[in-house]
């Protein structure tokens, strides 16, 4: 079974367009996606997708702390159902 990191990267790849990144390029785990051309509403929708995929319950209030793939991965590792 794919690791949480592989699943999260795959979700990112399929659903968000990160400025300056070409398809197939590795994802920078420490880049803040809010500063990479992703709108706040797209981020909110993406976090709902993460909740669906991992059975987590990230709320609107948590969003501000989970804006890098690494912080999101740490959250998922600690809270996935």
């Amino acid at each position: 079974m794919a690791s949480n990191e592989e699943r999260l990267i795959s979700l990112l790849d399929e659903n968000l367009t990160i400025e300056g990144r070409n398809a197939g390029d590795p994802i920078d785990l420490d880049r803040n996606i809010a500063e990479a051309g992703v709108s706040s509403q797209d981020i909110a929708a993406f976090l709902r997708l993460v909740n669906e995929e991992f059975g987590t319950s990230i709320s609107a209030g948590d969003c501000g702390d989970l804006l890098t793939p690494r912080s999101l991965l740490e959250y998922v590792d600690a809270n996935a159902a």
Partner: peptide, 18 residues
């Protein structure tokens, strides 16, 4: 804000988020 009016994969999640 500007957006192209194109089909989105998970419109349900976008609606829920916004």
């Amino acid at each position: 804000d500007i957006e192209e009016r194109v089909e989105r994969r998970r419109l349900d999640l976008l609606i829920e988020a916004a």
